[in-house]
Every structure is written in C-alpha cells, then in structure tokens.
Amino acid sequence: MDKSKVTPPDISVDKLVKGDRDEIARFVETYSARVYRLGMKILNNEQDAEDILQETFLKAIRGLPTFEGRSSLSTWLYRIATNEALMLLRKRHPETISIDAPTEDDDEDNEALEIVDWSHQPESELLEKETRQKIDSAASQLPLGLREVFMLREMEGLSVKETAEVLDVSESVVKTRLLRARMKLRRELTRYFVEKQKKEVADE
C-alpha cells in the first residue's frame, strides 16, 4: 500500500493560525518529507529540492492566517510547493522550462502505438531493479507540465480534482496530461522490453 495515501493525523488549523509552536512542528513533521520528495521529483536536484522545502514552509507558516480552508491543508501546501518549484526553475534553469504541455506535433502519441504485450511477464522480471530504474528515469524526464501532474497523481495519490486545484488548471487538463505522461512511460517501457528481448535472443 502506498504510504502517501495514509491519512495524516488531524492538524488543527485554528492552532496553526494562532501560532501554536507544537502544532506547527507537527505540521512540519507530517508534510516535510513529502514536500521534499515532490521537490526532488520535479526539480531532479537535491539542493533545489531543499531550497523549495524551506521556502514552502516559510511561506506556508507566514501565510497560515490567509488559509481559507477551501482546499485541504495538504493541497494548499502542495500548491505553494509547486509554485516555488516553478519560480526556482524560471530563475535558475530557464532553459528547462516548457510550462505548456508539449504541442501535439512533438508528441509521439500520434505515431505508431508500439504494440508489444509485455504485461504477462512474471512479476519478478517486471519488478526487477533495472525496470524500476528505467521507469523512474523516464518519469524524471517527462516535460514539466506532465511531470507535475504525474507526480501529484501517481506518487502523492491526489485525486484529479485535487491535482487541478494544486496546479490551478482544469480537471480536463489534468486528465489529458496524465494520459500523455502514462503513454510516454508505457512507450519507454515497451521499448525497453523489446530491446531486452532482442539482446536475450542475440545472446543465445
């Protein structure tokens, strides 16, 4: 079971707003590791992830009095974190930014669907370390817009609605980006298994 989906302990927003230090420490304890992991996955850089971790909590704690409770505390926090990540990317790595989901033209989804059924392989092969590294690396190379959606949905377990709230986009944009991200990763794995099979045949 994905640990990220475990319901976090109830944190009292009232106490947070009043500046209760015990509650603020509990808030930081509950969410800091997840904000850091999200930062790592979006930014692919330890220093950048640490910087946005600190900025996110500084801004969140400062901004608590303006938290209106329209979204959950975690959704609100992820929203600050993804905005911080975006600002940091703009500042430090402007060359990596393509906020808009890539246009249809540069997407290979319109090409051959690469039909090879590798899904019936034994679990031991599907889950071996190399396969997991392959998918992790492919996910880290998704275009930013797809990567954010993919990580919030698949890693953090947010719903489509929550993901849309965090990123301030419509639910249909989330669904489209998620489809594209999943398609891209599926294609990468298909290529990987095809190559692997070719190599095994050649080695025989």
């Binding site: 640990k3 850091y36 599907l126 998918i135 999943r182 599926r186």
Partner: peptide
Amino acid sequence: VVLNTMKKTIDIYHESNEPAEL
C-alpha cells in the same frame, strides 16, 4: 495491449515509488 501495458506501467511505477524520507 495498450490497456494491459499501461496498467502494468502504472503498477511498476507504484512499486518502484520510494517512501518519502527527509
């Protein structure tokens, strides 16, 4: 095939997802 392999892709990603640690 696209359905089956996409499902597996998502499963593999979930399995490879490391826990959040600081």
